[in-house]
Nucleic acid binder design. Structure first.
Lengths: 339, 339
DNA sequence: GACAACGTTGACACCGGTGTCAGCATATGA
DNA sequence: TCATATGCTGACACCGGTGTCAACGTTGTC
């Protein structure tokens, strides 16, 4: 790799290093003449500033970390794509940190990763966004961070949120509008705070419609396919089974679909099934899933934007960026049949 | 973030910077006494060398790039996980580059990414592993690179390969052993070289078993769910349809399953369906897919290992690391029914 | 005992940028 | 007209490591 340095450019343009540096950083106090001369030299020599050197001088690394733990690979790649979008625009590099949120040595691992990499900032995704010990550690280490989809402490750091509660509310209203009243709900993993939000959205819609929610219609799932199978089986075993099952994510819903298929319960004619997240599986499964799409990419892109802002100008007024979810109706839901 | 520098350690230990540096790099000519003293200071002060500074001095960035373009998100995260494993061991950071392999400005984008980031090396995954213009550019720019699963030019760079041909061969033999002879094959995307390998594995097994392969049993797919639906529909429309369909990946197979479900063709009783890749969908779909699992994580981990070797000691003898695939039998395949 | 060889150590320059500050020319104000 | 403000520029130190080389004390050899 040819290496043209700032000195080469300085010599070529007949000015000092410092002036080159000024042009690089778009500082104002450079005469138009000099600036053009320097820019021409950039062009001719194919100059690229060395981020290492720049980083050493400014005590920055131009690295942004992305911390996540999500079994949903589609979610992960979407987050990455969104984050990268902003990173590339702003000339930062993205370093990924998949970690187990329940690892016992999580804090130690994180600390050592941070120390080794000298990151400029960190993006936290659920469930890390709500993990107090991590936030405390980051604050103590004075690491800039932005949280994606936290559910509390919004003023603690910049964050990007979506409206899970409202999305679940809308989905439930949609099912009610199809004539369903026997609507079951499968909760997500209790350690993920969004689980509660989604449940509350469901409950709110049920209450509003004055539908008495039956306790046996609320199952505890864990965001996994297996838990979907288990809960689905229990729900379909009820003497008086639901006519619609709203699952806290698409994997659970897929598990429910499997059980329904095995028992020849026809979806959507005898049973409507809905998911959440718009994972790829929701399209590839048959029948395809009615679900909720979160603007994950945009949220991640916005998160990095906030992060870079807070890196550049320390006294940031903590921003919360809000995004709205979108209901996606596919083949797995239909008007209630009997009754 | 507290910053303890080499100078602080030097002062604390009562030796020169250079000696600290020697200990850091495990150089031999340091007395045991001094070494221990320095190590103790490391411990006490919590010293972490600054990668920026080190990189500036040695002209390294400790960044490794991962270039991929794969609609299969599970493949992507597996590759990442494997690559990260080695990176973290060796104290490198992984920078990800998802790119469209058919973008017109691909080379320009890549060049600028490389220039901006000053990577130490790059991991290429299919289909980039076989794209000559990219290889040429990298060589011209003198960028170290390792290819994952290339299909040609093995001596051009270090590479990590699996045996797709053999895996497809084994899968076909498995179907034959179940009594199938009307075995259809849905090819992958023609621009991905693995497509041909998988086809050849199928053909080889068919020939060996002296089963005349019918041209209408070989369909052109594109690694997508949609193409699976299309091909599946055509195959099931044949007067004399196949009793087994071997798809070049799991998405295609999922498409086939959907068509079968829509037509009430019972899988696996009337039709066996197999995929390739062991994507998550292969487990979550019903019936779950018989497929081929590639040791993707291990391959990526090995790839980074080779890359770091070639970064450290330029005169590397070009290694090829080989990995074997594994057949995973699930619910979507069964002995042939009639006949 | 003289000298070479060796192991250990530090002074200093250097990597390629940025920050500070001083110097100069020109514009502005009284 | 002179004093001051302003715009533009470069010299130089500095960021935190590594490479080079010289200096030092110790050991080995004759």
């Amino acid at each position: 790799m040819k290496k043209v340095t700032i000195n080469d450019v300085a010599k070529h343009a007949g000015v000092s290093k410092k002036t080159i540096s000024r042009v690089l950083n778009n500082e104002s106090n450079v005469s138009t003449d000099t600036k053009e001369k320097v820019l021409r030299s950039f062009e001719i020599l194919g100059y690229r500033p060395n981020p290492q050197a720049r980083g050493l001088a400014t005590n920055q690394s131009y690295l942004i970390g992305l911390l996540y733990d999500n079994p949903n690979k589609s979610y992960v790649t979407d987050i990455q794509t969104g984050a990268l979008e902003t990173c590339q625009k702003e000339n930062y590099n993205l370093v990924i940190y998949p970690e187990q949120h329940d690892a016992i040595d999580l804090l130690d691992r994180l600390r050592s990763l941070l120390n080794n990499a000298h990151l400029d900032g960190l993006i936290l995704t659920p469930p890390f966004s709500d993990m107090k010990p991590i936030l405390e550690m980051l604050e103590q280490l004075q690491v800039n961070y932005v949280r994606i989809a936290p559910t509390e402490d919004f003023e603690r750091s910049p964050c990007v949120v979506s409206n899970d509660l409202d999305a679940a509310y809308q989905m439930t209203r949609y099912l009610i509008s199809l004539g369903h009243s026997k609507i079951a709900f499968i909760k997500g993993h209790p350690e993920h705070n969004v689980s509660e939000l989604r449940l509350n959205g469901y409950l709110k819609a049920m209450q509003e419609a004055s539908i008495e929610s039956q306790p046996e219609f609320i199952e505890q799932g864990y965001f996994t396919f297996r838990s979907g199978e288990d809960c689905g089986r229990r729900l379909l075993n009820l003497k008086n089974p639901p006519s619609a099952i709203f699952s806290s994510n698409d994997f659970i819903a897929a598990g429910v679909l499997k059980v329904a298929a095995q028992r020849s319960v026809s979806v959507p004619h005898q049973l409507s099934v809905c998911g959440f997240d718009n994972a790829p599986i929701s399209r590839y499964i048959w029948p395809s899933l009615t679900t909720v799409k979160q603007p994950i990419k945009s949220m991640a892109a916005e998160g990095v934007k906030l992060l870079i802002q807070s890196i550049r100008q320390k006294p940031i007024e903590f921003g919360i960026s809000r995004f709205e979810d979108e209901l996606i109706v596919r083949e797995s839901s239909a008007p209630v049949a009997n009754f």
